[in-house]
Amino acid sequence: MMIVDLVDEVDFKERLIALGAPVTQEQSLAQVQSAVLSWLQSYPEQTPFVKDLCTEMQKDNTTVLPEVSTVMAAFG
């Protein structure tokens, strides 16, 4: 049996919230992308943490849903 780590919209939002990003579970991914990009403009010191989060979530044995991957790409 193969076990696959899956990063879905809920996981992604939870991890962003844990970083302190102004995100809620109720927001769409488009709203999350906009909110985080705006947050990073106001608090550029958070950029490395968001990038590290995205890198961590895209490890070799992790499957990221395409919609989530698209938003991650917007963060650099």
Rank of each mutant, 00 (worst) to 15 (best):
A73C: 06
L29P: 01
V10M: 04
I3D: 04
V7K: 10
V23G: 08
L16E: 00
C54H: 04
R15S: 09
F12T: 09
L29S: 01
V64N: 02
M1A: 13
D8Q: 12
P22G: 14
L6T: 15
L65W: 01
D60K: 12
S28D: 02
D11K: 13
V23L: 12
E9N: 15
Q46H: 10
E45F: 08
L16F: 00
E14H: 03
L29A: 00
T63Y: 07
C54R: 02
C54F: 07
K51W: 08
G76R: 11
Q46W: 14
S42V: 15
L19R: 04
K59Q: 13
S28H: 12
S42D: 15
L65K: 08
L16I: 00
L40A: 04
S42Y: 12
L6Q: 07
Q27E: 07
I3R: 03
P48D: 08
F49D: 13
Q31T: 05
G20M: 01
S34K: 08
S34Q: 10
I17E: 02
L65P: 06
K59D: 12
T62Y: 12
I17A: 05
M72V: 05
D60S: 07
R15Q: 10
L37W: 04
K13D: 11
E14G: 00
E67M: 10
Q31A: 07
P22L: 14
L37E: 09
A73L: 10
A21H: 11
V23Y: 03
A73R: 13
M72G: 01
A74T: 10
V50W: 08
D52P: 09
V10N: 06
T62G: 02
F49I: 07
A30L: 05
P22S: 08
F12C: 03
P48Y: 06
L16K: 01
A35K: 09
Q33E: 14
K59M: 12
F75M: 05
V71R: 00
L37D: 00
L6Y: 05
N61F: 06
V50D: 09
Q33M: 07
I3Q: 02
T63N: 04
T55Q: 08
L19V: 07
G76T: 10
T55S: 06
Q58H: 15
V50Q: 05
N61C: 07
M72S: 05
Q25I: 15
E26R: 14
V64L: 03
K59S: 09
T24L: 11
M1W: 06
Q58I: 00
K13A: 04
Y43M: 13
V50Y: 11
Q25L: 15
M72P: 00
E9P: 02
Q31S: 09
D11L: 13
N61A: 06
L37Q: 13
A73Q: 10
V36S: 09
Q46C: 13
I3T: 10
D5P: 01
T47R: 14
L53V: 01
P48V: 04
A35W: 13
L16R: 00
Q58F: 06
M1L: 03
D8V: 11
S38K: 15
G20S: 09
L29I: 01
E9H: 01
Q27R: 09
D5T: 02
W39A: 13
P22M: 11
S38I: 11
Q27M: 15
A35D: 10
D60F: 03
E9K: 13
A30D: 03
E26S: 14
K51L: 10
T55L: 11
E9R: 08
F75I: 04
